[in-house]
Design a protein around this nucleic acid. Sequence first.
DNA 1: CCGCGAACGTTATATCATAACACACACGAT
DNA 2: ATCGTGTGTGTTATGATATAACGTTCGCGG
Lengths: 159, 159
Amino acid sequence: METKGFEHHDHHHCIATSLRTAEEACKAQGLQFTPVRRRVLEILLDEHRAMGAYDVLDVLRKEGLGSQPPVAYRALDFLVANGFAHRIERLNAFVACAAPGERHAPCFLICRACSAVAETPGRRASDALRAAAGELGFKVERVAIEAEGLCPACVEADA
Amino acid sequence: METKGFEHHDHHHCIATSLRTAEEACKAQGLQFTPVRRRVLEILLDEHRAMGAYDVLDVLRKEGLGSQPPVAYRALDFLVANGFAHRIERLNAFVACAAPGERHAPCFLICRACSAVAETPGRRASDALRAAAGELGFKVERVAIEAEGLCPACVEADA
DNA sequence: CCGCGAACGTTATATCATAACACACACGAT
DNA sequence: ATCGTGTGTGTTATGATATAACGTTCGCGG
């Protein structure tokens, strides 16, 4: 897995690939990739940024796919539970997963200036944490690692 | 720094020590350790668990120290900004710092069964994250590392 | 004594999230 | 074929978290 988020890339391609991956993963695991769920993932991929549940809901509303908060939250919960999206605790927001299908412990780099969010591999940090927790008898189930600071572009702008 | 949170310890002693440390740190840095701020830190130390801002506010209310949300949030923000308390993003809650005065990048171990929160050193995980971010040109300013799972007691209860 | 900055008090409102219940539909069992 | 069951969706209502904005107080240096 590479870091995604601060570099340009073929967006249409990455959207199509992620959607297909999700679709296949759902089929393989007997999960329902319903229109609402699919559309929410599309929205996240499309915007390519951390979005609040209400931001997603606004889009759904315009399309007649649901107008009340639970609709958005349920779809987002599904996507997060199955690894197609992540929740950014720091922002109370959601992003499409940059590497769906890969089992991974993502880290997020959150720019406080432009709000860009990059996902980067968190294996080493996550392993370090699991080791420390293991010594205490704590059984780790989920890990959230989030860094706030300045992305490369904003570091330059700042200087 | 040791891990704190799952073991018993002399509570009166640790409250007194933490308060004194905070007081001295404020004096040294020209910060105002006002009655509200002091009391909020006391409350967090006293309860020795992650508390929501409104939980803290309830206590303040009963004591006539302030009854509106901004009072609690301002005091909590002060404590967090100066390292006397931490914010747990996952829980939208706050805990007293287990090692005030020490510069540290804490990790939190959050039990999903009993809601206990332990603070454990995050140096290794934090270093790993900073290294990864540095390679990308991302300038890390703050790091939040939070693990959710089962604490030793609840692992046993579960088994 | 005045001006200033920092903290506090208060009102109002914004933002994020979920409980609870009704309805629709697919699907396997009888 | 129909009935029960599970899963997803639609909707109402409400709960929980957080902050903007503005006035007041108070200590301190000019």
